[in-house]
Computed example of a mutant assay.
Amino acid sequence: MHNPTRVINRIFQFLVICCLFSGGASAQESSIFPIFVEHALGKTRIEARPERIVTIGWSGEDAVLALGLVPVGMTEYKFFPSGMFPWNETAVGDAKPILLSDAVIDFEAVAALRPDVILGIYSGVDDVSYKRLSAIAPTVVYRSGPWQADWMEQTYLTGEALGKRQEAQKLINDTIAELRALGTSHPALVSKTFIFGSYFPGGNGIVVYLPKDPRVAALVELGMVVPPYVADLASQNPTELSVFVSFEEMEKLAPDLVVMWYKPGAREALEKQPLFTSLDAFQSGRYVPLEDAVSIWATSALSVRSIPYFYPHFIGQLADAAAH
């Protein structure tokens, strides 16, 4: 006769195996919880795999979507008809996330969404706001500083908070590889010097972004380099992402290529400044002005979604300008 206990044990083992195979990734992800995520404002405990996710700040939803989830609430970008970045519209699909103000944190609106976790990694969340958000749900912010997290930090911390660290690291590695492959496919850009800047009408100079800024770091991944003067400015300002360079100092920049993003009216104002237009790069047509919303946001709020969406086009613009 069969031993009833042995039969029951075998049936139980079979059912466990079936559950593991059918629930694979979900079971694995759930088993790592609770987890702790360390960041600049504390150490956040997340009890279970989050399902209702709210993102605040810039481009936080990009990393969540890239990891296969859709936030219940995310930042609204009023420059786009849908209120979303165009590179995210397909991933959002038929879901209807609530779009939150990008100007101030609406704590009541966030609480109404009943989030399991709040992600404010590329944001200006301070200690007071962090405490208010944490009273609503576990909240994860930056490790670097307010408005300083690059797309890699944002992706990695999002992966940690969602129990998808390995997937997040793969997204980072794949995106870096894509940038480097784009650079390899455009050898004329390798070792070209560039500045990436902006201008605000009425100013007596321009903002120049330094190598720590994601805009600049992405072009360095393509194989380009900053001019010696910008490298010196970075050494003198090791904690800064950008510096102000007056029109009188501008000739010291001497880049092969000038990339500028502009708010409405700013380009026209700057191009009336003789000390800017006397730059050899401008005179020769080695100049890439970014004025439309897609160009500005894809290069200012970089992510694992915006880079594959925009940079294959952007590198063509850079290569065409460098050819002059």
Rank of each mutant, 00 (worst) to 15 (best):
K164I: 04
S306L: 12
T44Q: 03
S129R: 02
M74K: 13
G197V: 05
G23Q: 15
G24C: 08
V125F: 02
V110A: 00
E251V: 14
G93T: 06
A66S: 14
I105Q: 04
G24P: 02
A161H: 06
A322T: 08
V72C: 00
C19P: 08
L189D: 00
V16N: 09
I307Q: 03
Y156V: 10
P71Y: 00
I206D: 05
S185R: 14
F200Q: 11
V7G: 01
I296L: 13
L189S: 02
H2N: 12
L318E: 06
F79L: 14
F14M: 15
K263G: 05
S82P: 13
L189M: 01
D292W: 02
S198H: 11
A137E: 03
E89L: 10
K96S: 15
R180N: 05
V304A: 08
G24S: 06
A161P: 04
D62L: 13
K131I: 00
T299N: 10
G24T: 05
E153V: 04
V259R: 06
W147F: 12
M260I: 03
E271G: 05
E108D: 13
Y142W: 07
Q236F: 05
I11K: 08
V216S: 11
V220T: 11
L182K: 08
M1L: 12
I176C: 03
P308F: 06
D232G: 12
Q13V: 09
A91R: 10
D256P: 12
D320G: 13
E38Q: 12
H2F: 14
P312Q: 14
A168V: 07
I53L: 01
F85Y: 13
I17G: 15
I206Y: 01
H324Y: 15
P81K: 10
P274K: 06
V37D: 07
E249Q: 15
L253D: 06
K96W: 09
R305Q: 14
V128Q: 11
V125G: 04
S31R: 00
V64A: 01
A254T: 01
A149V: 06
P97A: 07
P115N: 03
A281G: 04
T239K: 13
P211A: 13
V125Y: 00
P264K: 05
D62Q: 14
A188G: 14
V294N: 09
R215C: 14
R132D: 03
F12W: 11
A109I: 02
R52M: 07
D94C: 12
L41R: 01
K164Q: 09
I17T: 14
W87N: 11
G23P: 10
F12Q: 12
V245G: 02
K170W: 07
V190M: 09
A111R: 05
V288I: 02
V258N: 04
I195N: 03
I56Q: 06
R6T: 15
A63Q: 05
W58G: 09
R49W: 06
T158S: 10
A181M: 14
W151L: 00
F36V: 15
E221W: 09
L275P: 03
N173F: 12
S30P: 11
I296D: 10
L67V: 10
V220C: 12
A177Y: 07
P264V: 02
Y209G: 07
L241D: 09
L171I: 11
Q283S: 13
R286C: 08
V64C: 00
D116P: 09
